[in-house]
Design a protein around this nucleic acid. Structure first.
Lengths: 157, 157
DNA sequence: CTCAATCCCGACGAAATCACTTGGGATTGA
DNA sequence: TCAATCCCAAGTGATTTCGTCGGGATTGAG
């Protein structure tokens, strides 16, 4: 059985998010060196290839990767890693980040939530949404791709 | 069919979290006025009573509410609303906030994740976890219980 | 030209999880 | 005594997840 790295509690991303991010990181490592095939990545990351395909389609439709068909084909990032915020990746893979559908701001709230008068709870979900969105917006794929030179140059001296 | 307020994307809390928070808010409103029965709350919030029971048990075991049995019994908050952080409520209801089991800091990471050498991704999950925990730690139940006097005293002038 | 590698796409299915429901207790105030 | 309440375990139907399977369409290399 494959080990499950995704948690089972609150705020659990599914394997879509987990595998998809790992896929993107692999593409990030390969950036500038031509397309990588899914077969390669599936081997390196030890993930089911057929399932990765589905995720790759989603990422392609979201404009995050581009594909080249035929022999020696594969996927490449559509943009440099530093220009791909993690929020975009996870939104494409998992759907909206909002924890509740009524986690929208005041204007729209009445439309979807008939509990407006008594619903003080939605303030909570908005806070959660903003916290997550903030964290994911400020992080790009480049932050997850290890530097080319592995000699300790993590924090600039 | 009951309307579903919880979202279906990433970071979706389940009904446990949603209903449980609503339950706690009701108890917060009633704080200092004796126990509230689940039947009452189920009516006010339009939620299935038997299901609320399960959530109440969890909250009780977590030390967040205390119960009185028998007629005129019910549940009360174990502490004043201002001393109940929302993180504690949601952790009790939904499990750990971490989005991935490997969202632990460096020391423990090797123990659960054999991908350490290549796994740069776990940095992401830690960021997400911290963002959510931060938002939920600084918010208490008191922030969600509307003030007794409904005259507009939300933002202090 | 041929062939193997690759992407593309839709359908299917087993397993898990969710959101409850059912059916009973035990305890207590009126 | 009795009704209201909490307590608890087990079951259940629908949905979602996590993939698999089978077959195309496209392209570079030999």
């Amino acid at each position: 059985m494959r080990p499950a790295f995704h948690g089972s509690g609150a705020v659990a991303f599914s394997t879509k998010g987990e595998y998809g991010v790992r896929l993107m990181v692999q593409l990030g490592r390969h950036y500038g060196a031509g397309p990588s095939s899914l077969a390669e990545i599936a081997t390196v990351e030890d993930l089911p290839r057929a399932y990765l395909e589905q995720l790759a389609f989603v990422l392609r439709d979201a404009g995050l990767v581009s594909s080249t068909r035929g022999a020696r084909g594969g996927y490449t990032l559509a943009r440099p890693p530093a220009e791909i915020p993690m929020s975009e990746i996870l939104r494409a893979l998992e759907g909206p980040l909002a924890p509740m559908i009524c986690a929208t701001d005041a204007a729209d709230h009445d439309l979807v939530c008939d509990r407006t008068s008594t619903c003080t709870v939605n303030f909570l979900w908005i806070r959660v949404r903003d916290a997550i969105a903030g964290a994911l917006d400020t992080l790009t794929l480049a932050d997850l791709v290890p530097p080319r030179r592995p000699s300790g140059v993590i924090g600039q001296p």
